[in-house]
Design a protein around this nucleic acid. Structure first.
Lengths: 119, 119
DNA sequence: AGAGTCACTTGTATTTTGCAATTCACTATT
DNA sequence: AATAGTGAATTGCAAAATACAAGTGACTCT
């Protein structure tokens, strides 16, 4: 993980946005909270991330220390991406987003309880 | 407010991201929570949003119903942008982001109590 | 050897964001 | 009346991010 220090400002909201303020990072976080860990699994999600974006997002998330690349099979070598504690710390943000989304966009899915209540 | 219905997916997180998942909307939200309402005031923030982006973001936020354009002076006509209830509902997300940012990026500002505790 | 699988990488088009300069509607001053 | 000033944008173009389609590399299995 490289520690950027050229933030737009020292505001924690602004700094946070520089880490995960794009269209995909929080979607991948959601998938990881739901147990997905592998490249191929992330590709299956309904938002249909493309392969190049997925690769760069996973690399950036790893660099920022919110996910970690880990060997889970050695023949052939295969890696999975798992949440770090720093990444898990983003859970309350996802939960708040679910609440807000469900409240203002009634056709959105209700997330399963195990997701909303995860520590 | 036009109601888009072509979301990437019915996931509330994904839908939320399509409303405020960019580099500026939540920054403007923060400023509004801190009492800023006018074009010129938003331009003063340390992240230095540019005039064209500011204009389009304010228009989009208005279209999505998270802010409202309101006449506050008639000669000459001047408008201010104020949060709607829907916009105010995003406050918990900003608070969570502050907590996470402060925890993982120690040089970030601690937000004033009136911000963190706002209903 | 050949086909298959998983995890990418590459090339190019499209979209979004950023930067600088300019415009518009109006007021205040000369 | 002409000029300058102010707040709120709009316009034109460059740069960066994202999207789409195809291809590659490392390995396994038949």
């Amino acid at each position: 993980m490289t520690t950027d220090t050229n933030w737009r400002s020292p505001c924690p909201i602004s700094t946070s946005l520089e880490i995960f303020g794009d269209k995909w990072t929080l979607i991948l976080l959601r998938d990881m909270f739901n147990g997905k860990t592998k490249y191929g699994e992330f590709l299956q999600s309904p938002e249909r991330i493309t392969t190049n974006i997925l690769a760069t997002r996973l690399a950036t998330m790893t660099r920022h220390g919110i996910a970690q690349k880990q060997l889970y099979q050695s023949n052939p070598k295969r890696y999975e991406y798992i949440l770090t504690d720093k990444g898990k710390g983003l859970h309350p943000i996802l939960v708040s987003m679910c609440h807000w989304g469900n409240e203002h966009y009634p056709d959105t899915w209700i997330a399963p309880a195990h997701f909303m209540e995860k520590v």
